[in-house]
Design a protein around this nucleic acid. Structure first.
Lengths: 246, 246
DNA sequence: CGACCTATTGATACGTATCAACCCGAGTGG
DNA sequence: CCACTCGGGTTGATACGTATCAATAGGTCG
């Protein structure tokens, strides 16, 4: 099921070196992290961990996309986190996992055993600092998301999601890049529905609604073209300045 | 509008000494925090700060209840945080506030200017550690809340809220205390509605529905008696083990 | 007492869920 | 090569839950 990467990769060439928990570390500190790290990969659709599992490993997402979900007994599912490269899984100081973690695409994790990691946390303030920063960012995103779930209409939810993906694909790291009018959806309709607190059917209907109104243009199931970004922003119910959602 | 407390209070007799950001501090560290702190009070209903305000002060709630809210232009309002004693307001490393903060009851804050506080954060790891812990707890609570907003019915939302308040009043600090069958609602119907992503009318209707079904018993508008806690838990759609929501 | 605020209750509208049929592209096997 | 199936997506008809609009009740304060 899980293939280990044969060779330990080098931190200095790591794609998430500057954004993950290790972002603020100097070379010496990086060596110490390197000593306790190991890679693990999961293929698309695979369950990475389940609610209630013992949480003896924490990890950074190196590549791929994963989701954090909570489900009720009767099957209702709500996504509570979308994990992209550099995001952190698990929390120091807690022994069991609170959510189901699932790989949406093929995923590579940079793992640390929890105990040694907790020790490093104390010894290397740079890691703790960065982790705090990341936790606060996620908290802000979660709160924006709560506004979406609690008060937005289906159409606004879809538009918000598209804006979100548009922002990320246009400037994944602050700088503008790529085609602003074309975005690729990294997730299925079902995943979107669980993200937005909707059903698949409603998601689908809103897509066609936005298309018929000329706000977006569909190119297959996974590609959306946006002729008028301002128009989409208007549909999202946001005022533009706020609304990070990662 | 804002009355300053004349005398600086002593940290050692502070009611939130063992739960707030200063929880892990030793006496020396406490002295340093004490040097830069000041109290501020707000009366019920007062706006403490608004989205977009410069965030040059961070604070702990010493007494009272406040809310964190996001509102859309057309007036739709979603509460995104309920601040109780020991909770922290503001975030180091961010210059403007993302949410409206409102006093629900009379509120006393223990404030720190942001810059000096950020310095202390680096110098006193105990504070940073505690702040990380608190941020992660809030993140978990926010995620449970997302499940509620996205996937629960009105009845389940009300039941969940009541369970939440019941848990807090029964054992505010881990130990059981007080009458398990009687809880007092600290917030109005409108505040509940904004908390749960509902309207006032729906909140009201669900209360009477639960009452008619014998799940709860109302004693005026602010007091609820719960003959059967298991029954209420069942109505909430939770399985009991999880579900912190603070 | 009247004014006002919060909460409740009622009638109705509207949005989204549900249930079901159908479409389409990708594999798969005869 | 074509028939088949299978998963994901779309569309339609309808049901249901919550919002909306409006009226009423109860409590508090002047």
């Amino acid at each position: 099921m899980e293939g280990d990467l044969a060779a330990a990769q080098n931190c200095s060439s790591c794609p998430i070196r500057h954004r993950a928990v290790c972002a603020r570390c100097d070379d010496d500190e990086l060596v110490r992290l390197n000593d306790i790290k190991f890679y693990k990969t999961y293929s698309a659709g695979q369950t990475i961990a389940m609610r209630g599992d013992a949480l003896d490993v924490v990890a950074s997402v190196v590549a791929g996309t994963a989701t954090l979900e909570r489900v009720i007994e009767d099957g209702r599912t709500q996504m509570v986190g979308l994990l992209l490269p550099s995001d952190f899984i698990g929390r120091p100081g807690r022994a069991t996992l609170q959510y189901d973690v699932t790989a949406v695409s093929d995923v590579t994790l940079c793992c640390f055993k929890r105990k040694p990691f907790e020790n490093l946390l104390v010894e290397i303030p740079a890691v703790q600092q960065r982790l705090l920063e990341m936790a606060l960012d996620e908290l802000d995103a979660a709160r924006d998301w709560m506004l979406l779930l609690g008060r937005k209409t289906a159409r606004e939810k879809i538009a918000s999601l598209l804006m979100l993906i548009a922002k990320r694909t246009m400037h994944p790291d602050g700088k503008v890049m790529g085609d602003t009018t074309r975005i690729e959806l990294p997730i299925s309709r079902e995943t979107m529905a669980n993200f937005l607190g909707l059903t698949i059917e409603t998601v689908s209907r809103q897509f066609t609604g936005l298309r018929k109104d000329g706000v977006i243009d569909l190119d297959g199931n996974r590609v959306v073209r946006i002729p008028d970004l301002e128009g989409l922003l208007f549909e999202s119910g946001d005022d533009g300045d706020g609304g990070t959602l990662f």
